[in-house]
């Protein structure tokens, strides 16, 4: 078969180490003035694509793709610094795209760019939807292997080990296919300085939803976003001695 033409979608999300806060109107999580980075699962996807190439698989091209605000180009640059060859950014500032919208968009990209392998994060940590990969597989009618913890490609056959409750499952399918990745798949590399420099010169194409004939209309309505209830209980003691007598009282020591 011909080489692997990989598509890796990446999303810019609130950094996973930042504690999310619900906005005053309780309609979403506060995003302004908050540190953003690449969705951690997407780092794994990029890493895996790059490793396939490093393992001398016939990787022709790694395309990183993102849809969202213009700032998403930062995560595309990171993806390119990690080893993606080029990037496409669909700029959409106003509306937060839903998984189905993204899946439709990706289907078009797959078609336009003649992809035969899409590696996605199993979910993005902002909405935790865990749907895009599956929907994309449905739209394209391609085989899918979700939550991958190991990926092997031989000829046009892909073997994926995936994590399931209480064990692992090994799947095999023929390209083209969809893979979504889980945390144990690999350990993403740091973006090295020379590669960050190189990434600046890699092509990054900017497009709009209209270019792909997709509209951003929402099908879902967010009714309300709330914080989890605060932890209950917990008394206050004056000092260590107070704590010790309390612990004794409770029979803990």
């Amino acid at each position: 078969m011909s080489g692997l033409r990989i598509l890796v979608p990446v999303k810019r999300v609130v950094d996973y180490a930042v504690k999310p806060r619900v906005n005053k109107a309780q309609t979403a999580v506060e995003t302004s003035g908050v540190k953003h980075s690449m969705n951690p699962f997407d780092e794994l996807s990029i890493e895996e694509a790059v490793r396939l190439r490093e393992r001398k698989m016939p990787v022709e091209d790694i395309l990183a793709f993102s849809a969202g605000p213009a700032k998403s180009q930062d995560v595309l640059r990171t993806a390119m610094a990690m080893g993606a060859d080029r990037g496409i950014l669909v700029v959409e500032e106003k509306t937060e795209l839903e998984p189905l919208g993204v899946a439709k968009l990706l289907a078009k990209v797959v078609e336009d760019e003649k992809r035969n392998l899409v590696i996605l994060g199993k979910q993005s940590i902002d909405d935790d939807a865990n749907q895009t990969g599956q929907m994309l597989a449905g739209l394209l009618n391609w085989p899918q292997a979700t939550q991958a913890s190991k990926v092997d490609v031989e000829g046009d056959t892909c073997t994926v080990v995936r994590e399931v409750d209480g064990g692992v499952e090994t799947l095999r399918a023929k390209l083209p296919m969809i893979i979504t990745v889980d945390l144990r798949l690999n350990e993403p590399r740091y973006a090295s300085l020379p590669n960050i420099m190189k990434a600046k010169k890699k092509p990054l194409e900017k497009k709009t939803l209209a270019d792909y004939g997709i509209d951003a209309n929402k099908r879902l309505k967010t009714v309300k976003v709330t914080e989890p209830p605060p932890r209950q209980g917990g008394g206050k003691v004056e000092d260590v001695d107070g704590m010790i007598s309390k612990l004794k009282e409770l029979g803990a020591i």
């Binding site: 690449m38 990171t78 610094a81 740091y190 300085l193 960050i196 420099m197």
Partner: peptide, 28 residues
């Protein structure tokens, strides 16, 4: 980021540093 990038390009270009990485997110 702009300042840092200029700095990084400079120290790499002038070979003041031999290699380096930049944290892309909080855990890095």
């Amino acid at each position: 980021s702009e300042k840092l990038n200029t700095f990084l390009e400079h120290v790499m270009g002038e070979e003041i540093v031999s290699d380096g990485v930049v944290a892309q997110d909080e855990s890095q």
